[in-house]
């Protein structure tokens, strides 16, 4: 049952990304290009997504348990530390270079776009490198 819900939410998420235009790197770069002809559309994506998510999160928090009876796993970290700052700047630079973030990369792979496959492979490699580097340290 969990797998079916997870699959459907992934599917819906992917459809949302396509409808929103997030799967088109040219459109994402148009949003990130403040000094050029700026396309503010992605602000709309954020607003639409946050309104709905905030509503469902509030409702779910009031229920106290998920509809499948699972405990709600809210992130507990609140500190703004060096890895958070370093990591998100790095992510932003990568996002700006190609106009692709993780969700749209996977949708692009599903669409069979060769560039998305190259990007996604490099992204997974980057994640693996992080895993190796942090494992060594601890």
């Amino acid at each position: 049952m969990r797998a079916i819900f997870a699959y459907l939410m992934g599917l819906l998420f992917g459809v949302g990304l396509m409808v929103a235009g997030m799967t088109n790197p040219a459109k994402v770069l148009g949003f990130l290009d403040l000094a050029g002809a700026w396309d503010p559309s992605l602000m709309g994506v954020m607003v639409g997504a946050i309104i709905v998510t905030l509503g469902i999160f509030t409702l779910t928090r009031q229920r106290g348990v998920s509809c499948l009876g699972a405990p709600l796993q809210w992130p507990s970290a609140t500190n703004i530390d060096r890895p958070l700052i370093f990591g998100n700047v790095l992510f932003g630079v990568g996002w700006g270079l190609a106009g692709i973030c993780p969700g749209p990369a996977i949708v692009g792979v599903g669409a069979g776009v060769p560039q998305a496959v190259i990007f996604a492979a490099a992204m997974l490699l980057g994640m693996a490198v992080h895993g190796v580097l942090t494992r060594k340290r601890s």
């Binding site: 997870a6 939410m9 998920s66």
Partner: peptide, 17 residues
């Protein structure tokens, strides 16, 4: 599109937590 993304993000918390 954003609302659909929100429905999925909210839905994952609502169903799987």
């Amino acid at each position: 599109g954003g609302a659909l993304i929100g429905l999925a993000a909210g839905g994952l918390m609502f169903s799987l937590g």
